[in-house]
Amino acid sequence: MTTYRKPVSNTWWLESKPYFLFVIREFTSLFVAGYCLFLLLFIAKAGDSQEAYATLILSLKSPTSMVFHLISFTFILYHAITWFNLTPKIMVFHLGEERIPNALIAGAVYLSWGVVSLIISWLILGS
């Protein structure tokens, strides 16, 4: 018996908002990975001579670099929020029969994020 299979179009990910957001998230992984590479590079360079390091820092202040960082920051934020929201679904805790509410676990994750960010900011800016 013949069956009909609807072909999947190349633009399937434009046909619904959740699919679009998903594909964007996948796409932004490139930036996340790019930023990781950059960090590794940065750490490697940090051990170089004072001058080379100064040049690197200077180049980071260039408009291109600023734009790259801004974009990467947005995309990493998008990823972070996705996974933070997923956390309570993966880390399921029960208190007897009652499941600990998602909001509580997600809240705790966001809170720790905030605290860690504050500490780091204080370390960098405050010292």
Partner: peptide
């Protein structure tokens, strides 16, 4: 699974299969 998450959105019984899959990954 790359965690689109729509399976759980459309589930009429709130089974949340997306979460089941991510938990299995962990």
């Amino acid at each position: 699974c790359t965690f689109v998450g729509e399976c759980s959105v459309v589930c009429p019984k709130d089974v949340d299969p997306a979460a089941a899959i991510q938990r299995a990954k962990v």
